[in-house]
Design a protein around this nucleic acid. Sequence first.
DNA 1: CTGAAAGCGCTAACAG
DNA 2: CTGTTAGCGCTTTCAG
Lengths: 331, 331
Amino acid sequence: MPVTIRDVAREAGVTVSTVSRSLNGAYGVNQTTREKVVAIARRLNYSPNRVARGLVTGQTQTLALIISDIRNPFFAEVARGAQDCANRAGFDLVLCNADLEPAAQMRYVRSMLAKRVDGLIMNSVMLFSREERDELAASGIPVVLLNRPRQTKAFSIICADNVQGGKLAGAYLRKLGHRKIAHLTGPKQHGNLTDRSDGFLSACADGIVIHGEQTFRGGCAMARQLFDEHPDVTAVFAASDAIAFGVIREAWNRGLRVPADLSVIGFDNVEVSGIIHPPLTTVHQPKYEMGEAAVEILIKHARQIAGGATPMPEHRILGVQLIERESCRAV
Amino acid sequence: MPVTIRDVAREAGVTVSTVSRSLNGAYGVNQTTREKVVAIARRLNYSPNRVARGLVTGQTQTLALIISDIRNPFFAEVARGAQDCANRAGFDLVLCNADLEPAAQMRYVRSMLAKRVDGLIMNSVMLFSREERDELAASGIPVVLLNRPRQTKAFSIICADNVQGGKLAGAYLRKLGHRKIAHLTGPKQHGNLTDRSDGFLSACADGIVIHGEQTFRGGCAMARQLFDEHPDVTAVFAASDAIAFGVIREAWNRGLRVPADLSVIGFDNVEVSGIIHPPLTTVHQPKYEMGEAAVEILIKHARQIAGGATPMPEHRILGVQLIERESCRAV
DNA sequence: CTGAAAGCGCTAACAG
DNA sequence: CTGTTAGCGCTTTCAG
């Protein structure tokens, strides 16, 4: 049904190879011939079948993004950065939501491999077993891991400077004069969050640390526990904005005013943090840029592989930034 | 590098056609032969090259989702529903963010067509010109439009019952006893929003309608205008949650308490509406289900096309629902 | 039930 | 500079 390279060739009175060369800007085509071919291709509304091209070149100009959930605003922002960057380079991005299930994640990986994507971005927990990791590495396609600071050295890694972010938050609260400070975070042993805790504790060695669920609900629950057990706390550093929102909600419920009675600082700087009341002071992660960086690396590596080279995995840590809004005050 | 169907065939001592048939569950293969082939394929860790298969079958098991911006929580939710549904059927989903630019949108459409996706979901404004529309229709792949109530009859359409939603909101505010009610919405002549307005006006014929930008900032701006020009208004129906958040923010700035001094109802029911203070009463759109429905239609139509049939475009309107939270009160 | 052969639409040597 | 030839890896008639 659609017009093929053969149709163009016939119409132009040349062979398909000449058409291919003309359209792909390869050397060795008479300028006049090329122009003629290009004109005819345009007139026929010809568009090369990328599947066919992919089969012969071995490259699909497609990347995969395997994350836990696109509804998480953090990932939405990363995805947008990744897609924009991919688009600029003529690549497409396929989206996979694997939640936190290793099995789902691995199914997606295999499916993407079978579709011969040129690269893979993944986040999500404890990826696969040793064999699975080897399987991926053996596939020979570039992989960048998102936010997995201490992972194997076989893949590239992009993450924000979580240690620095935690330190920034802790130091800021101390500078405001707070002395009884709590840190509400997710599960222990969670790469990112552990780094944030470490950074925080380096600035507030006597900080109270409470673990829970890294969600709005989790934030509510941890805040309840905190208010019950440590009513003298004057400031909290939430390991994510979602947790911070829970803290603010719970503070409201207890009649505590933020920031009058309680200072709260978050982490991530998701869009809503500027919209809620009070506007949330938080540590900004360069989410969009992380997506861009991941794709940038992938494309570079894919080109190297196409050129016969073996790319070196790259580990890039992006800077964070304190965003002062209205949820903290000096005491 | 990767193991091909030929490797399996050689190892099994049969030809590639037998391997193909065995693996695809086609009729006419000796049970014993099939089992042997399957076992060997598994042992070799064989996974068919989907690009090659796509070239011959003409189907890629891939769908495209062209939206304005995945960072918009509305689209994130739709995307998640779409991706889940696609995944269940063995399809993948490629994500494109075209913002509101017709040119970008058309580039994505063409790119997806060239990659031979099996179907297309699009939202975004005033798609293309007549020729562009014809070009898409001529491509012969199924298309479903998101939230474009009054579009051409050549494509399928999924949208929420916006008229009903507007009516629900208006009737609710009246039932609470409000008489001076304002409706803050986006640009005029915007399919969805116009429907919401119409529904609202059918319940509140004397409602004040203000047009602006359909964003948080736009909500702030419209609220300022409203408070200046109509200080006696006791309730507002915002055409989207984003606008409602702006109204609440601006109310705070003016010292108006929500809902004590001003009742606010939104539209969409994005996740944050349950997180902000006060929790927002709003009209729920079945976003996830809209994504699912879109993919469901696409896949059904793709199968029909593969079977030689010509699918009939389908128009599906999904029901909405009033979510009562704490931003409205009776007067 | 299985094999041989053709071909999807394109690129890429290799000749001429 | 252009044409001929050979596949990429798979499915699918068509024979046997």
